[in-house]
């Protein structure tokens, strides 16, 4: 089964952030090792509102042949996020936007109200919105009403590397929205976290710190790519259900009914 976002087919289910690498050269090697087809760039935090999309850092992303997904990291209101998205569209010449509206400083918990408001306005303005949200079902429904055709719930707060904090909630979100791509965005620390999300049936993973902050970012990028592939393959293969009692794979002689 293929993976597409807003009608764009993508070969890899990994989306990689571009912040906090030791150097652009390491970033480029990590992107190559991960085979990611999409990279996110923070318009505000990484570029400080870049004046020119022609600058070397962006030229390097261009050389990688990846699609740039600008994001509105660091925005705390719908207004800010909308303005940042408009700036991003000019710089990167794309109508895709990873929408972040932060509601709480310690957890960087998304602000569901600001998110829905901004998503509605941006969609009306022609943007393809990929909202960074939580596993909350009601917010998810409102985001879809606002025009989002992809949802990106957190696994855990940004940069914590805690993995999937609320597996029950993520499972419920998947069950309620079987028909659109769901991407776990943020909180992934280990390849096993990424694999676990994929085994739940999520369509992709967006991560940054787990790779950029690793001792060897390039090796971790490859590890994440392998885990995501393994998790997806496991999901598609139809895992056996979990059960409480042992189920011997060959009959035990003399105890046919135990």
């Amino acid at each position: 089964m293929g993976f597409s976002l807003y009608g764009v087919e993508l070969a890899s289910r990994l989306l990689l952030g571009t912040a906090q690498y030791p150097s652009p050269a390491v970033l480029a090697d990590a992107v190559r090792a991960s085979s990611a087809g999409v990279v996110t760039v923070s318009v505000r935090r990484e570029t400080g509102g870049a004046a020119s999309g022609q600058q070397r850092f962006f030229a390097l992303l261009g050389e990688l042949g990846v699609r740039v997904l600008p994001n509105t990291a660091g925005c705390h209101s719908a207004r800010e996020a909308i303005a940042t998205a408009q700036m991003a569209r000019e710089i990167f010449e794309t109508d895709w936007i990873k929408l972040e509206v932060i509601g709480e400083a310690d957890t960087l918990h998304p602000d569901p109200f600001g998110l829905v408001e901004a998503a509605r306005e941006l969609t009306a303005d022609g943007f393809r919105v990929l909202p960074y949200c939580t596993e909350d079902l009601v917010t998810a429904a409102h985001l879809r009403d606002a025009g989002c055709e992809v949802l990106m719930p957190w696994g855990a707060p940004i940069g914590t590397g805690r993995g999937l904090n609320n597996v029950y909630g993520l499972r419920a979100l998947r069950a309620h929205h079987p028909d659109i791509p769901l991407i776990v965005d943020a909180g992934i620390g280990l390849p096993s976290h990424a694999a676990a999300a994929m085994e739940l049936g999520f369509d992709g993973i967006l991560l940054n710190t787990a790779v950029a902050g690793a001792g060897d970012p390039v090796a971790m990028a490859r590890a994440m790519a392998l885990a995501i592939e393994a998790g997806r393959a496991g999901f598609e293969a139809g895992p056996v259900p979990m059960r409480d009692m042992a189920a011997p794979s060959t009959p035990v002689l003399g105890t046919p009914f135990q």
């Binding site: 990484e46 570029t47 400080g48 870049a50 004046a51 600058q55 660091g74």
Partner: peptide
């Protein structure tokens, strides 16, 4: 000191 890619010149921002 901040570290921002993109090559923008100009005065310091309030955020920084």
């Amino acid at each position: 000191a901040t570290m921002l890619e993109g090559g923008r010149a100009g005065p310091m921002t309030l955020r920084s």
